[in-house]
Amino acid sequence: MVKVGESRDVVESRIGAPMHPGRSSRAVYDTDPMLVITYREDETVELVEIGYGGEEVFFEGVQLTYRFMDDVVAELAAGGHRAVPFDIGFSFEPGFAIFSMSSLSASELDPEASADDPRRVVEGVSIAPFDYFREPTQEEIEAYVRGRQAASS
């Protein structure tokens, strides 16, 4: 429904206006599945986030959302996609990440799961260029802090 780099006007001509009025850099759209889009300052799509529920998200035949994260990572790895871990999920070279905010428990998918079952459920997919998901270097962090300090002076 949306591609990274498209203009907000093109996106909204296709899927309609966001649920909340205004032109915030982050907009939520009442689509199936629901989309949360982050726009750059130039009003082009920087990041697309897709939640679970309704129509699930697939990549190369692998269902990404509303499944156990370890199962999704294993299937993608079997297809040749290397997972790079980050705090709430994994990113993949084609330019997407799967994540869990831990709002769903394992019992959502497995009625036999105990209350303390540690398996995470994929709650969403983020789509952006692969570099978007990498951890910043110490030099990049320092440059960012210097830039913020200079801007506030």
Rank of each mutant, 00 (worst) to 15 (best):
S25N: 15
V11S: 12
T137I: 03
V145M: 13
E41F: 02
E112V: 05
I141Y: 07
V10P: 00
Q149P: 00
E142F: 12
V57H: 02
D32L: 09
Q138I: 10
A83Q: 06
A27E: 14
Y39G: 11
I98K: 04
R23Y: 08
P111W: 05
D87L: 04
Y66I: 00
R26Q: 14
Y144M: 12
D116F: 14
D110R: 04
V62M: 09
L104S: 14
F96Q: 10
M1W: 01
A150H: 06
M101Q: 13
P94Q: 03
A27Q: 15
F59T: 02
P18G: 12
P18T: 03
V145K: 15
Q63E: 14
E139A: 15
L47A: 01
E46F: 00
V145G: 06
F130A: 15
F92I: 04
A151E: 15
S100L: 10
I15S: 11
E41A: 10
R14V: 06
I127Y: 02
R119G: 11
Q138C: 01
V36P: 00
R148I: 10
D87R: 15
E60R: 12
Q138F: 07
G61S: 07
A77Y: 00
G54W: 03
F58K: 06
V125W: 06
R23C: 11
V36L: 13
F99Q: 03
D42S: 03
G53C: 05
E135Y: 07
R119P: 07
T137N: 09
L47I: 04
G53V: 01
P136H: 10
F133K: 04
G51E: 12
P136V: 15
A128N: 11
G61I: 03
S102Y: 01
V121C: 10
Y132D: 05
G147D: 09
L64H: 09
G54L: 07
M1D: 08
P21C: 05
D71M: 02
G89S: 09
L104C: 11
P136S: 12
P33T: 04
R146S: 14
D116R: 13
Y29E: 08
P21K: 12
G53T: 01
V11G: 11
V121P: 08
A106R: 09
F90T: 00
E56R: 01
D131A: 15
L47P: 02
E60D: 15
G89K: 09
F133H: 03
G16T: 01
S91M: 02
G124E: 07
H20D: 11
R148Y: 06
G5L: 03
V45Y: 08
I15L: 12
E12S: 04
S107A: 15
P129E: 10
V145W: 08
L64Y: 03
K3W: 09
A150N: 13
F133I: 08
S105F: 06
V62Y: 10
V62H: 11
V62I: 02
A97E: 07
R148G: 07
I127N: 05
A128W: 05
G95R: 03
Q138T: 15
S153A: 14
Y52C: 09
P129T: 02
A115M: 14
D30F: 05
H20P: 00
R119H: 11
I88F: 12
I50Q: 03
A115L: 13
D116Q: 13
G61C: 05
G147M: 05
G124C: 07
S103Y: 07
L109C: 09
R119Y: 06
M34A: 12
V45K: 06
E55V: 00
Y144R: 15
F92T: 05
D71N: 08
R26H: 10
D116N: 14
E93N: 03
